[in-house]
């Protein structure tokens, strides 16, 4: 067995997990034989605990909206002109004329393929979904058990009359919701879960100047968004479901949201 002399330097290394595994036993023996060093080590352990405790609360603080906004990429994105989408409103109008809500969604697959990839609403919705749908304990701010308050609160904040759609027919139950930044304004996020724990989210914002709809996938095999924009509101349904299932959920959510807005 190799023996080496330890020094105060090793106290720091041991404390920081940098002491080689095969030296730890000998280090403990050395520490026990040197009361002064042992006291020093105990003091550093206590100071470290106090340091950590002093800043532990920061991790639980809500992230300031101004910081989230930067990541959602409003400022830099704005300077890049949106690719022209003159054909989208026309296409959407045609779909609506043909078959109401059903017809509207029937066209999604075709539109989705041609849709430019920089739709901000879909990107924001997917980014929010990636973050919050993965959270077990802090996925929502207001749980479904407080649904009335959730709807009133989000409606007031977003500036739309929001009714959380009932997606039980598609197998999804409301988990709850939260408020998020969306560019210059705010968005409501409603989270749903099925009995297997699969989650989808609904992202609704009152800010939209244009009419558009489509599907958007951020990454291969990543969650997908089915979205639509109309004058005065925008909505996206995000999830990692098969396209047909996601479209069915979106269709149901869309018609219920529309009915809610009009009520």
């Amino acid at each position: 067995m190799t023996r080496r002399d330890f020094s105060e330097r090793d106290i720091h290394m041991a404390l920081d997990g940098e002491l080689p595994v095969d030296e730890r036993v000998a280090y403990d023996v050395w520490l026990d034989a040197n009361p002064e060093m042992k006291a020093r080590s105990a003091r550093y352990v206590a100071d470290r605990a106090a340091l950590r405790a002093a800043f532990a609360g920061v991790l639980d603080e809500p992230v300031p909206a101004r910081l989230q906004k930067i990541v959602f990429g409003e400022a830099p994105v704005k300077t890049v002109p949106m690719r022209s989408r003159w054909w989208l409103p026309a296409a959407a109008a045609a779909m609506l004329a043909i078959g109401g809500v059903g017809g509207y969604f029937a066209g999604i697959d075709h539109l989705g393929l041609e849709d430019p990839a920089e739709d901000q609403l879909a990107e924001q919705a997917i980014a929010a979904h990636v973050i919050y749908a993965a959270e077990q304990r802090h996925a929502v701010e207001v749980p479904a058990s407080d649904k009335d308050h959730l709807q009133t609160w989000l409606s007031n904040r977003v500036g739309l009359k929001l009714v959380a759609p009932d997606l039980a027919a598609q197998g999804f139950q409301l988990v709850g919701g939260r408020l998020l930044p969306a560019g210059e304004s705010k968005a409501a996020m409603l989270l749903y879960e099925d009995d297997k724990g699969e989650r989808i989210s609904l992202f609704v914002t009152a800010e939209s100047a244009e009419k558009a709809k489509g599907t958007y996938e951020s990454e291969e095999n990543g969650p997908e968004a089915v979205y639509w924009l109309d004058k005065g509101y925008g909505c996206a349904v995000v999830g990692s479901l098969p396209r047909a299932q996601l479209t069915a959920v979106a269709k149901s959510a869309y018609s219920q949201l529309l009915a809610g807005l009009a009520s």
């Binding site: 910081l67 989230q68 990541v71 990429g73 990107e123 990454e219």
Partner: peptide
């Protein structure tokens, strides 16, 4: 791109803690 942004978003609490200690 979105995955990168999501990862950045997830680091904000720790960045804030580090900044607060500085």
């Amino acid at each position: 791109m979105d995955e990168k942004k999501a990862a950045i978003l997830g680091e904000i609490p720790r960045l804030r803690r580090y900044a607060r200690s500085l």
